[in-house]
Amino acid sequence: MKREKNLKRIAELLAWIQAKVQLFNKLHYLDINISSETFFADLLNLVMDLNFSNLNQQNMNNPYADLYDQMNNIYCQVTSEKTSGKIKESIDGVESLVSSDKDSRLIIFLLTSKPRFTTDFVTKKITFCKDNDIIDMSKLLHIISTKDNAKVLIIKEYLEHNLDAINEKEKTICSEDETIIQIIDYLSNTQTLSDEIDSIIDPHDKINRRFSSYAEYIKDEYKDLYVAYGISLSTVYGSLINDEIKRAIHNRYLKTLSVKALEICQNNPKMALDNLVIELNNVISSNGRNYDKSAIRFYLVDQIIKCNVFPNEVKYAN
Rank of each mutant, 00 (worst) to 15 (best):
225 L>M: 10
270 K>S: 03
193 L>K: 05
217 Y>G: 00
225 L>R: 03
2 K>F: 08
299 Y>W: 05
155 I>D: 03
150 A>L: 13
21 V>N: 06
119 T>Q: 14
159 L>E: 06
293 K>I: 12
111 L>P: 03
316 Y>D: 14
69 D>K: 01
197 I>M: 10
86 K>L: 11
155 I>Q: 03
230 G>T: 09
193 L>H: 02
230 G>M: 07
67 L>Q: 02
288 G>T: 12
318 N>Q: 12
257 L>A: 08
4 E>V: 13
175 S>C: 05
17 I>R: 00
199 S>D: 11
94 V>E: 08
36 S>R: 04
20 K>D: 13
188 S>I: 02
311 P>H: 05
152 V>M: 06
270 K>H: 02
11 A>R: 11
70 Q>N: 15
251 N>F: 08
182 Q>M: 09
273 L>H: 02
24 F>G: 02
6 N>D: 15
34 I>Y: 01
39 F>G: 01
126 I>F: 04
132 N>F: 01
95 E>F: 12
165 A>H: 05
278 I>N: 06
250 H>F: 15
209 R>L: 13
292 D>I: 00
67 L>N: 01
91 I>M: 10
80 S>A: 11
60 M>L: 14
299 Y>F: 14
154 I>F: 06
176 E>S: 14
303 Q>W: 05
271 M>I: 05
253 Y>K: 05
100 S>A: 13
109 F>H: 07
99 S>T: 12
80 S>C: 11
100 S>C: 07
106 L>R: 06
143 I>Y: 01
199 S>M: 11
140 L>N: 01
275 N>V: 00
298 F>W: 05
83 T>V: 12
137 M>L: 11
